[in-house]
Computed example of a mutant assay.
Amino acid sequence: MAQEFDRAYWEDRYRGGHGHGHGAPPNPQLVAEVSDLAPGRALDAGAGTGAEARWLAGQGWRVTAVDISQAALDAARERAGALDAAAAERIAWVRADLTEEIPGTGFDLVCSHYAHPTGGYRAFFDRLAGAVAPGGTLFIVGHDHAEGHGHGHTHGHDGSLEHSRVGAAEVAEGLDPAQWEVLVSESRSREVDRGGRRAVLHDSVLRARRRT
């Protein structure tokens, strides 16, 4: 039976030290696609332990890092302060359920990496898209649902891999072409080290610019 990814699930996971990315680098797809953008206001939707928020802040972005888990945010805040106190001051850590509310609008960048929203992806991505300012960027990375391997293999057998798969083309199709220019919509493969074992991950990557 598929796991219900509610607040209790994530609080338990992060309190138990099983959340992803405590010492991980930022998502390489984000680094590749966002490095050329001028820093502004960013929303990191589903910030987890903060690798992407820390990287964005280090690039000069003012980041609102949102997660449903307070345990994740507490760990992320502590690590950010220890690694780069100056950059950490540019991050606001906010606990919120993004399927119910978005803390703010008019962001120059809204990004999400391997989200597990309750209530379905369509409504979730519609909410994220609505938070992007004119001229701003929507950036989504998920596990490619067309592939049988991926980052989610570390999740176990509770349905989380299946739940976190998303097709960039499907997200792109939900964006009104009168309001959005889709710049990237594709699957990308990359290798990672899993405790000395090489694994191939298949990412679904969407980058879109909201028209002014």
Rank of each mutant, 00 (worst) to 15 (best):
M1F: 05
A2S: 11
Q3T: 07
R7W: 04
Y9S: 02
W10G: 07
R13V: 00
Y14D: 07
G17K: 00
G17L: 08
H20E: 04
G21P: 12
A24D: 13
P25G: 15
P26C: 02
P28I: 08
Q29W: 10
Q29F: 07
V31Y: 13
V31N: 14
A32K: 14
E33C: 14
E33I: 03
V34W: 11
S35Y: 08
S35W: 10
L37E: 07
L37P: 12
P39D: 00
A42T: 07
A42K: 01
L43N: 00
D44A: 15
A45C: 12
G46T: 01
A47F: 01
T49N: 12
A51Y: 12
E52N: 15
E52D: 15
L56Q: 00
L56A: 12
G60C: 06
R62G: 12
V63A: 15
T64Q: 13
T64V: 00
A65M: 00
A65Q: 01
A65S: 14
A65D: 13
V66D: 05
Q70D: 13
A71S: 14
A72G: 13
L73D: 11
L73R: 01
D74Q: 14
D74S: 13
A76M: 04
A76Y: 09
R79C: 08
A80M: 00
A82F: 10
D84S: 04
D84R: 04
A85K: 03
A87E: 08
A88N: 05
R90N: 14
R90E: 06
R90S: 11
I91L: 05
A96W: 00
D97M: 06
L98S: 06
T99Y: 02
E100H: 13
E101V: 13
I102N: 04
P103R: 01
G106R: 00
G106T: 02
G106S: 03
L109T: 07
V110D: 01
P117G: 09
T118R: 12
T118V: 13
G120C: 13
Y121A: 00
Y121R: 09
A123F: 06
F124L: 11
F125L: 01
F125D: 01
L128S: 02
A129G: 15
A129P: 08
A129E: 04
V132E: 10
G135N: 08
G136P: 01
L138C: 10
F139P: 11
I140H: 09
G142K: 02
A146E: 15
H149M: 11
H151F: 15
G152H: 03
H153D: 15
H153L: 02
T154P: 03
H157K: 13
H157Q: 12
H163G: 01
V166N: 06
A168R: 03
V171A: 03
E173V: 01
G174S: 06
A178G: 14
A178M: 06
Q179S: 06
Q179E: 15
E181D: 15
V182G: 06
E186C: 08
E191A: 04
D193Q: 01
G195V: 06
G196N: 02
G196D: 06
A199I: 14
A199S: 10
A199N: 05
V200S: 08
H202N: 12
R207F: 13
R207H: 05
A208P: 13
R209V: 05
R210T: 00
R210L: 08
R211F: 09
T212I: 11
